[in-house]
Design a protein around this nucleic acid. Structure first.
Lengths: 201, 201
DNA sequence: CCCCAATGTTAGCGGTGCTAACACCAGGGG
DNA sequence: CCCCTGGTGTTAGCACCGCTAACATTGGGG
């Protein structure tokens, strides 16, 4: 009936824990979360969370997975509204850097998670890389990109993007006062420079 | 006399703690260190470390500072034996990536330290950037580099280097089985590609 | 020479991750 | 229909952690 008076069983503790953990990491950083605090927040005893996550790391892996999914969603969303391949590539770069700037703790967690879910991240990453390489080969066939090793070109632009994102997350002195709009422009400028250099545009 | 029977006062606890903390972070990662364990290692009571470091974060800041100094030393060492400016730049990039590959935990700690010592890192970074920009302007005057904003070019190559290093530290799937020699070659190839693109070489 | 500030000690508080043993209850098989 | 099983919650507690307060020791400068 009204208000759903708390029953002995929570109902969906796992999702609740995951959700508040996600939000807490995003707003306070990964080191701000504790199993006991999460349990308190969910109105449940300190031992309950361990019924759903073998240990803290498993929880963090799950949060990382969720964050990675969110990142990927944003990337897809960004490329969806672009027609030609080059603008897609640019949009992806911008979205990637923007995500890092807006959710540094989540971005950090994604990349510091090297246990089980690393496999998941690897697959996602591979997918993205394949897309990128396909695009580069397409460009090479059209004579727009020099005949360097596509893998290497992909790796380079990936490193550029990731590096920019990381410099922002790591509060690089020159970037620490950057707004996300400035980050957008910076990402655009950098990729443009790289593309100009390589001959992409 | 012989063996220096332990006296009440340790003698140089601060340096001892810092040293073992540095080594422990390097070999086991930052989360493997605890004040109490450090105290035990130094053969001293659990409260003693707090006479020298206000709290754990201050200790970590000190370790980060030490690591940053070590990084800078390696960078200087790498450029010292190069005559012309371009090879210096390349050597710096390689040394940077190599340090990240060989000491991921220290590299990580350096960049995740945003409290007091961030100022120190900022200054070091600024110094490095100024060197880089001077080099770029030199290249532009010689007509070897296009007249793009030197700041932007510097930022781009910095992002490339940092990104490569980070991808290695973050165990990027494509890079996780890389030897440090392979890392060296990769860094060389990437910077070469960038330089070629920009017109540096 | 002696005293005091620096540096060590013990004891302890509140928090943490995690485990064991037990309590509850929902849903499917007899 | 009832019962019982296994998933989910509870309480109690262990070992460790960061950190503090109050006390002990001692070496070096006035």
């Amino acid at each position: 009936m009204g208000g759903a008076a708390k029953s002995y069983h929570h109902g969906n503790l796992r999702e609740a824990l995951l959700g508040t953990a996600f939000r807490l990491v995003d707003s306070q950083g990964v080191q701000a979360i504790s199993m006991r605090a999460l349990a308190r927040e969910a109105g449940v005893s300190s031992a309950a969370p361990f019924r759903h996550f073998a240990d803290k790391q498993v929880l963090l892996d799950a949060v990382a997975e969720k964050a990675a999914a969110e990142l990927e969603r944003k990337l897809d969303e960004a490329t969806a509204e672009c027609s030609d391949a080059l603008t897609q590539f640019r949009a992806m770069t911008v979205a990637y850097v923007r995500f890092a700037a807006e959710h540094p703790a989540l971005f950090d967690l994604i990349h510091s998670t090297d246990s089980v879910s690393a496999r998941f991240l690897g697959e996602v990453n591979d997918e993205r890389r394949l897309k990128l390489i396909a695009l580069i080969i397409e460009g090479q066939n059209a004579g727009l990109i020099p005949d360097a090793d596509p893998e290497l070109i992909a790796l380079t632009s990936e490193a550029l993007t990731h590096g920019l994102a990381r410099m922002i997350v790591d509060r690089h002195p020159r970037l620490q006062t950057l707004s996300s709009e400035q980050a957008r422009q910076l990402a655009l400028a950098a990729t443009h420079l790289l593309q100009t250099g390589i001959g992409l545009s």
